[in-house]
Each structure stands twice: as C-alpha cells, then as structure tokens.
Computed example of a mutant assay.
Amino acid sequence: MKVSEITVKDCLEYCRAQADAETERFLQNALTAAKSYIKSRNAIDDAYMDEHEDLIIVVYILVADMYDNRSMTVTNGKENPTATTILKLHDKNFL
C-alpha cells in the first residue's frame, strides 16, 4: 500500500468510526490535512511519501488524532511518539 492509496474507508476502519456522510466528510478533510502536514513539516512530496510505507502509519495516527480531538481544547498536548519518530526519519528541513 502507498500513502496515496489510503481511502476514507481505511480511515473509518482505523478510527472505528460509524460510516455516515458527516463523518466521511470530516475524515476526508482530516486525510488531506494529515498528508499536507507531513509534506510541509518534512519538505517532501507525494512521490517520496509513496516510496516509504512507514509514513502510512503516521497518516493514520494523525487522522485518528484529528477525529478523536475535534474540540479546540487539548488535555494532553503531547505529540504521539511513534508519529514523531517516523517523521524525524524523513525530515528534509535542515534549518
């Protein structure tokens, strides 16, 4: 599987969410945002993302986090250590 092949149905299953129009719209937006975040944070493109299957996990983690934390307030405020570790492996921003 490639990052570009992740579907809303995959996200529904990963989040264990009920399939309804509102949830599917939200997860489509979350999927787009997760991919955009990864590309921006690490200065990588779609082709690079498709070459590295470990980024699939990061997409799922980010989508699930967006789904679980749909409010403005956050109680934990910490990044997922698995996602952070994988993202650091692919970071092209050397500032």
Rank of each mutant, 00 (worst) to 15 (best):
A34N: 11
I44H: 07
A43P: 08
A47Q: 03
K39M: 08
E22M: 15
R41H: 13
D50Q: 03
Q28K: 15
D10K: 07
V8H: 05
Y14V: 14
T32E: 15
C11E: 00
H52W: 08
E53D: 02
A33E: 07
T7F: 02
A47T: 13
E24Q: 05
M49S: 15
A21N: 05
E13K: 04
E53I: 01
T23C: 14
M49V: 02
D45Y: 10
T7E: 00
R41M: 15
A21V: 12
C11M: 04
A34P: 09
A30C: 01
A43D: 07
K9G: 13
T32P: 04
D46I: 00
D10S: 01
K39P: 10
H52K: 10
M49P: 12
N29V: 06
D54H: 00
D46L: 02
L31M: 02
S40F: 15
A47L: 06
K9H: 09
C15D: 10
D45V: 13
C15G: 13
A34C: 01
S40P: 11
L31A: 10
D46K: 03
K39C: 09
Q18W: 15
R16I: 13
E53F: 04
E22Q: 07
D20Q: 14
L31T: 01
Y48I: 02
A34M: 02
H52F: 01
A43W: 09
D46F: 08
Q28D: 13
Y48V: 02
E13F: 01
E5S: 05
K35Q: 07
S36T: 14
Y37P: 04
D45Q: 08
D50T: 02
A47F: 13
Y14L: 05
D50P: 14
L31H: 00
H52Q: 08
E24L: 11
K9T: 09
Q28Y: 08
T23H: 15
I38Y: 03
E5I: 14
D10E: 06
N42L: 03
E53R: 01
D50M: 01
D50R: 01
A21K: 15
I38D: 03
I38G: 10
Q28M: 11
L27Y: 11
Q28C: 10
R25V: 08
K9W: 10
E5Y: 12
D10L: 00
S40V: 14
E5C: 09
A34D: 01
R25A: 12
A47P: 14
A19Y: 06
L12N: 12
D54G: 00
Q28S: 12
Q18E: 06
A34I: 03
K9R: 11
H52R: 11
T23A: 10
E51D: 07
N42D: 03
H52E: 03
N29E: 11
E13N: 15
A43K: 12
A21W: 15
D20W: 02
A30M: 02
L27E: 11
T32S: 06
I38Q: 09
A19D: 10
V8S: 11
